[in-house]
Design a protein around this nucleic acid. Structure first.
Lengths: 157, 157
DNA sequence: TATTGTTATACTCTATAACTATA
DNA sequence: TATAGTTATAGAGTATAACAATA
């Protein structure tokens, strides 16, 4: 096999110039490759990284409203509607009526969602391990800490 | 201002579970934030990160064919056609006939493209610096090296 | 036959804006 | 008035597949 079609981050003979000095381009290249590895592992489940994130967050924080999930995931409310529609269609998530507020819905995983999430999580961990196979666990911890710093970077000085 | 609408990577009171242990989720969160910072810096130019990458690569490797650029950037040929159409429409890039091959085109930047790329690169470096402000230059070098390892991760054992 | 660029089409992910029903 | 969810629409960005011209 040898992954004939996977992304090649550095093509021999090509000059990348400033791209090689940018943290942003390094993050982008890593993200492309990780998405490929995750997609391979999750293909059989019909689960994308985004769907996995939503399932995990709802599983651990049952009762979230759609607006809250949108804020947590950093996407628009309309995007969450589509995402929840898909997961509901898969039998993994449910909208439940909120007693005090007829406008809102509480999100919960179905029993099937909870059950399958265990195996899906195993597949995700496997993909993450493949991606970081070139790093030891201490390196990965350092990497995550540095990336979190970037995630928290403010716009202004 | 204080960035009222920017992505919040960790919402207080929310449990993230395994997401906090995954390198992949950390990369994704960092990528979202970096994209926001790049988009802010490049907004005035009508340039996206992808367009910047294409301009930089063509600038340093003039004469690339569309198929080659597609491979280098890791996207489909049809995507490169649309990308080159946009940059050509902006007056930044040109298709040039290839003497020996009537099917192909050589890509080059226009003089305007070369000139503006200097300032655009400055804006990109500024955005990258903002994103990595919480890290010193040694940290950033380590970060880039680790991310490159991930970019190169094979699928099989 | 194979390759290059192109077009057509579709799907995902994102956004904004307008709508409805409730609060 | 404001909020929660929804719908409509649009724009990137990606993909596959088919095509014409050329190799």
């Amino acid at each position: 096999m040898a992954d004939p079609d996977r992304f090649v981050p550095r093509v021999p003979g090509i000059r990348y110039g400033v791209l090689d000095e940018l943290a942003g381009y390094a993050v982008r290249r890593a993200q492309i490759r990780m998405y490929e590895l995750f997609a391979e592992s999750l293909e059989q489940w019909g689960i994308t990284p985004q769907r996995f994130s939503a399932m995990t967050i709802v599983s651990l924080n049952p009762g979230l409203k759609l607006t809250e999930l949108a804020r947590i995931m950093g996407i628009a409310r309309s995007g969450v509607v589509a995402l929840v529609d898909v997961l509901e269609g898969m039998g993994y998530m449910e909208r439940q009526a909120v007693p005090g507020d007829a406008r809102a819905f509480s999100l919960v995983l179905t029993p099937k969602g909870q059950t399958d999430l265990v195996e899906i999580t195993r597949a995700v961990k496997n993909a993450d391990g493949l991606a970081t196979r070139g790093l030891n666990s201490e390196d990965v911890a350092v990497l995550r800490a540095m990336l979190l710093r970037i995630s928290d970077a403010p716009s202004d000085a």
